[in-house]
């Protein structure tokens, strides 16, 4: 241990010997606990219906992988999972991109422009932070129904597209951008929008990436709102679709297909997180100025 203490790498608390093994063991145990239900779901999606319903439940994958997944993607219970995946994808991307564009612009307005009622608007936006979708769901439904947007992508996306959190985040970021930068752009002859596009937008890109990950998952996991406004199964999103697969009354639940659907529903968010991990961490950690 004495040599180990001598030269630790800078900025890191180093553990050697027993400490290393104990900490890894704890981490592995944690991973196992988290991963086990997902493993069970995966196993359940690769066996036949009787194998699940008759205890004991299998712990190792069966040979029905292609059959179950093919059935889920192609036909599903009410509607093919492929359709639901596409719906969820459009909704999640629509919400994430929409929220980012709107909050970038509204934060830009709040930070860089003087207009009457600026603070009032800021606080109004801030207040909506306290109102989750569920609180305003009935009036929102009324509005969307009035516009005839039930069972449409517009209806799925628009009510969720404004984000006080993201506006606030970008506001805080813009406030850290030195005023001189805006002034230099003004002297260079850039119009406000030009400054926004050429300077602020590229400077915010790591924040945008981090926010995109968070908002994509937020959009993907929407449950109550799609459940309320999509009555047509072909507009179902996957998260609510899983619930729709549970039988009502005496029907038999097709567990392998439901589990295959669950596994499929998990894949896109995982891909988004993994592929944007680097940018995501950078967006949270450093501010490039």
């Amino acid at each position: 241990m004495t040599e180990a203490v001598k030269d630790p790498p800078p900025g890191m608390v180093e553990r050697r010997g027993a400490g290393l093994w104990v900490s890894h063991a704890i981490m592995m145990f944690g991973v196992l606990i988290v991963f086990f239900p997902i493993w069970l779901a995966f196993v359940a999606s690769t066996v036949t219906q009787p194998e699940i319903t008759n205890p004991p439940m299998p712990l190792w994958p069966g040979d029905q992988f292609l059959v179950n997944y093919g059935k889920a993607l192609g036909s599903g219970v009410n509607v093919p999972v492929a359709t639901m995946l596409v719906n969820s994808m459009i909704m999640a991307i629509g919400i994430a991109v929409g929220k980012i564009v709107i909050s970038l612009l509204s934060a830009f307005a709040i930070v860089y422009f003087r207009f009457p009622g600026k603070m009032v608007f800021f606080w109004l936006i801030f207040l909506t932070l306290m109102l989750p979708v569920e609180v305003r769901i009935v009036p929102t439904y009324e509005v969307i129904a009035g516009f005839g947007m039930l069972n449409s992508y517009g209806g799925l996306i628009l009510p969720l597209i404004a984000s006080a959190t993201a506006t606030f985040l970008f506001r805080q970021f813009y406030m850290t951008v030195p005023d001189e930068l805006a002034e230099a752009a003004r002297v260079d002859g850039a119009s406000p929008m030009r400054f926004f596009i050429d300077v602020l937008f590229p400077m915010s890109r790591t924040n945008i990436a981090a926010l995109f990950v968070i908002l994509f998952i937020y959009g993907w996991n929407q449950y109550l709102w799609p459940l309320l406004i999509t009555t047509d199964p072909s507009m179902n999103t996957i998260v609510m679709g899983i619930k729709q697969m549970f039988p009502s009354g005496d029907d038999i639940a097709d567990w392998p297909v439901i589990m295959a659907t669950s596994i499929l529903a998990m894949i896109p968010p995982v891909i988004v997180v993994i592929s944007m991990q680097k940018l995501f961490v950078r967006g949270l950690v450093d501010s490039e100025k």
Partner: peptide, 20 residues
């Protein structure tokens, strides 16, 4: 007139270079 129309150039204390 706007700064750009005054035919001036300015050097700022913190340089105000576009970081990206």
């Amino acid at each position: 007139l706007e700064p750009m129309d005054r035919d001036i150039a300015m050097v700022f204390q913190n340089y105000a270079l576009y970081p990206h």
